[in-house]
C-alpha cells in the first residue's frame, strides 16, 4: 500500500486531532461541541473506508458477483451517527442551560463564577 492508499487513515487522524485540539483549546462551550463532533466523525471514516473494495459490487447476493463491499461498517456507523447526534443534542442543551444559569458560555468566566461561589 502506498501513502496514497492510506489516505483514508490520514483523513481519520487529521479529523481526530483537529477535533481533539478544538475541544481542548477553545473556551466557548458550543465550539467545543463542534470539535467533539469532528472528533467523532473521524471514527465514521475509520470504519467505512476499509469496507469499500475496489472492484466490488454492492452487497447483494447475485450470480457472477464474487467480490462485494462489506455492509456491516455502514450499519455500525449509522448507529454511531445516531449516538453522535444524541450527544450533540444533550451537549447543546447543557450549553443552553449553562448560559441561563451563568449568563455566559465561556469556560473561564464560568470557572471564575464557580470560584466566586466557593
Amino acid at each position: 500500500m502506498t501513502t496514497l492508499g492510506h489516505l483514508g487513515y490520514w483523513a481519520t487522524v487529521a479529523l481526530l486531532m483537529t477535533g481533539l485540539y478544538i475541544v481542548i483549546a477553545r473556551g466557548h462551550l458550543v465550539k467545543k461541541l463542534v470539535g467533539l463532533g469532528l472528533f467523532q466523525s473521524s471514527v465514521y471514516l475509520l470504519y467505512i473506508v476499509p469496507g469499500k473494495l475496489v472492484g466490488g459490487t454492492s452487497p447483494i447476493v447475485d450470480q457472477g458477483a464474487r467480490v462485494y463491499s462489506n455492509p456491516l461498517p455502514h450499519v455500525l456507523i449509522l448507529t454511531a451517527i445516531v449516538v453522535g447526534v444524541a450527544t450533540l443534542a444533550v451537549g447543546l442543551a447543557l450549553a443552553v442551560r449553562i448560559r441561563e444559569a451563568y449568563g455566559t458560555v465561556e469556560e473561564d468566566e464560568i470557572l471564575a463564577a464557580d470560584d466566586h461561589d466557593g
Partner: peptide
C-alpha cells in the same frame, strides 16, 4: 450543569 458538560466532553 458544568460538571455534566465536562463529563459529556
Amino acid at each position: 450543569l458544568t460538571a455534566a458538560y465536562q463529563y459529556l466532553l
